[in-house]
Amino acid sequence: MSTAQATKNCITLKGSAQIIVEYLKYGINSILFQRGIYPAENFDNTQQYGLTILMSKDPKIVSFLQNVLTQTEEWLAKNMINKISMVITNAHTKEVLECWDFKMQAEAGDGVEAGDPTKQTSSKQLSRIQNEIRDVMRQISATVSYLPLLDCICTFDVMIHTLQNTEIPAQWNETGAVFIQNAQAVQLRSFSTGLQKVDTVVNYKMSS
């Protein structure tokens, strides 16, 4: 009976990576919709975290996010990611207008086998984690009220800040970090799976 209780609320590093990747999927789609990077008719309603989230139905974007997030999950399960940046740029001038940073921080966890980092576990309730994520998603929706209006054709890219010793997979390449001139940063709420903590920060260009 006691063992059953122990294994009930147990999140492994893989599970944590899955939760974070799910959050990233919904978060990025929500940002795409909220910031009006693609027209609203290209989005579908979905229920997640007790919220209505609009997901892109453009097959190109769906496949791109699928590819990126699969790779991200692999790396997250090995704790190799420092942060993930979603960069919004002007399609004509390539100027960086906004940068959404999802910063990853490894946490110790409270499992029994704390010695082996790959076998760490956390006993945090999934519903609690999802509630935290829901709060962040709400904040993302609310950012529209103060972020500057994107009044040009915009596009986005997802950049992953990994450790130096990471092997570059096929179809991926290395790029430089982006910098926003005259930037302003706003930190949103953060959530934690017990093994990884995710901070969401939005950097945006101050409208002159």
Binding site: F64, F156, D157, H161, W172, N173
Partner: peptide, 17 residues
Amino acid sequence: GNYKVLHMSENPANEAY
């Protein structure tokens, strides 16, 4: 310096450009 930035070579930004 401790990190390197990776991204998909076929990303929507490139396509849009």
